[in-house]
Amino acid sequence: MCADLRAEGEELDLLVADLPAPGWAKATPAPGWSVAHQIAHLTWTDRAALLALTDADGFAEMVAEALAAPDRFVDDGAAEGAALAPGELLTRWRAGRTALDQALAEASPDVRHPWYGPPMKAASMASARLMETWAHGQDVADALGVRRAPTDRLRHVARIGVRARDYAFAVRGLPVPTEEFRVELTAPDGGATWTYGPPDAPQRVTGPALDFCLLVTQRAHRADLGVRARGADAERWLDIAQAFAGPAGPGREPGGGPA
Rank of each mutant, 00 (worst) to 15 (best):
W194G: 03
A170T: 10
V157R: 07
T133H: 15
R47C: 01
G32H: 14
R94C: 03
Y196V: 02
A248F: 15
A241M: 10
V111H: 07
A60P: 02
G173R: 02
E10D: 12
R94T: 15
D4G: 11
A36W: 04
F212E: 01
W33L: 02
A259K: 01
P29C: 07
D13Q: 06
R92W: 14
G197N: 05
L238F: 08
P70S: 06
F244I: 05
G137R: 02
Y167G: 06
G246M: 15
E179S: 12
M131F: 04
L19Q: 05
E8Y: 09
R94Y: 12
G173Q: 05
R94P: 01
H113N: 00
T43E: 00
W237Y: 14
A232R: 08
R228C: 14
P20H: 14
H156I: 08
G246T: 03
A48E: 14
G58C: 03
P199F: 08
A30I: 11
A164T: 07
A201T: 04
P31F: 14
A241C: 08
L104I: 08
D71Q: 14
L214D: 00
A220M: 12
A126S: 06
A192Y: 11
R252I: 13
R172A: 07
R163F: 10
L53N: 00
D142A: 06
V216D: 01
L53C: 01
V183D: 00
P70N: 01
P118H: 10
G231F: 12
T217A: 04
G249M: 11
G255E: 01
R153W: 11
R182N: 05
A158M: 04
A105L: 08
S127L: 06
E235N: 10
P250K: 01
L67Q: 14
L238Y: 11
E235K: 02
L14S: 12
A164R: 08
R148S: 08
L84G: 03
G256E: 01
D13S: 09
T28S: 13
A40C: 05
P254Y: 05
C2M: 06
I240R: 13
K26G: 02
T217F: 13
L215Y: 05
V140M: 05
L67D: 14
F212W: 12
P247Y: 05
G256T: 05
T193W: 09
P20T: 15
R6S: 06
A30D: 06
P208K: 03
P20V: 11
V205N: 00
T28F: 07
R153C: 11
